[in-house]
């Protein structure tokens, strides 16, 4: 029964991936990619990895989907419909042969490794010392905190890289307005955004808190926050802030900075990123809440893209610049 479910799900995943990659129309491709991401989330549920399922559906399908749709719309406005010219038959045949060989090698390698969860037994006895129960959060924020610290800086670095693509002379400015051009639809999205943003805030706060013991965590919470901010910006309920706004900069670096400072304070307790006995949960939650805020703001601005020339789109968008 379960095996049948797994196999059908895997076939669906492969099918949607194939359509997303090879359909001619770019919008259809992106739509299938979002469906693919959601099915992949189901696959992670099938693997009993709820933390990853949340991240995959929110980030892999949601944020990536919005990013690609926006990029396609901006390309379309420049006269590029993102369809591909046909490549030569020889290239296709060669690529097919090479990739088929690659898949066979990879499959042989995969089958040679037994699927087992050996490290779960290693992590389980260490969890009581942290005071939390979600083992994935334990790995992310305690046992492999170094990786997560670097990752938070990667996200910040990506935003700096995206901002650096702004045309000459527009810095410091605003990203392009995300608001819909169509009036009635914009009002609908605006009302929905005003309703969604507080809900997203509460949900993000809950996801971080719950992430200590049940699936959840800073990345999932940050994505929910970013989703609320994006929908509000699309409906014109909030405007996008100027990139040099001091409050915005604080929100962007707060997470990595708090993480780094708590990590440095750990040198007093035995080493970089070592949490003091009994205070581990407090330290992890402080890091996670500040990270969630920073991730939310960073993701929303990553989706908005670099600064553009001129005022930020139609008048409605720049009306209220409450920002993040």
């Amino acid at each position: 029964m379960t095996a049948a479910f797994d196999i059908i799900l895997c076939l669906l995943i492969l099918g949607t991936a194939g359509i997303a990659l090879f359909v001619r129309d770019a919008l259809a491709a992106i739509a299938f990619f979002i469906a693919f991401g959601n099915l992949l989330g189901l696959a992670w549920l099938g693997l009993d990895a709820v933390n990853v399922a949340l991240a995959e559906i929110a980030l892999g399908a949601g944020v990536t989907g919005v990013l690609l749709i926006l990029a396609r719309a901006r390309l379309l406005a420049l006269g590029d419909d993102a369809t591909c010219a046909d490549t030569s038959a020889w290239l296709r045949a060669g690529a097919l042969a090479a990739c088929a060989g690659f898949v066979l090698l990879l499959a042989a390698a995969v089958l040679s490794i037994p699927a087992e969860s050996g490290l779960d037994r290693a992590v389980a006895p260490l969890m009581p010392g942290l005071g939390i129960e979600n083992r994935v959060t334990g790995v992310l924020l305690a046992f492999r905190a170094y990786d997560t610290l670097l990752e938070s800086f990667v996200l910040l670095g990506a935003l700096v890289a995206v901002w650096s693509l702004a045309p000459a002379g527009v810095w410091p400015g605003r990203p392009a307005d995300l608001g819909m051009a169509d009036g009635p639809m914009r009002r609908v999205a605006g009302s929905f955004g005003r309703f969604l943003l507080p809900v997203a805030l509460v949900m993000a706060t809950y996801l971080v808190w719950a992430g200590s013991d049940v699936p959840g965590g800073a990345f999932q919470a940050g994505t929910v926050l970013a989703g609320g901010l994006m929908v509000s910006a699309i409906g014109g309920a909030i405007g996008l802030p100027r990139s040099d706004l001091p409050g915005l900069r604080v929100a962007l670096v707060l997470g990595p900075l708090v993480f780094l400072l708590i990590g440095l304070a750990g040198t007093g307790f035995g080493g970089f990123l070592v949490y003091p006995q009994g205070l581990a949960k407090a330290a992890i939650l402080a890091i996670e809440y500040s990270l969630a805020l920073s991730i939310g703001a960073t993701l929303a601005l990553l989706v908005a893209g670099p600064n553009v020339i001129g005022p930020a789109g139609p008048a409605g968008g720049a009306g209220r610049n409450s920002g993040c």
Partner: peptide, 21 residues
Amino acid sequence: TDPLPQALVITGIVVAVALTA
């Protein structure tokens, strides 16, 4: 399911989104 690859994959998903952006 091993928590270490799970954490690694969550990190990977976030980096993939940064790359895509």
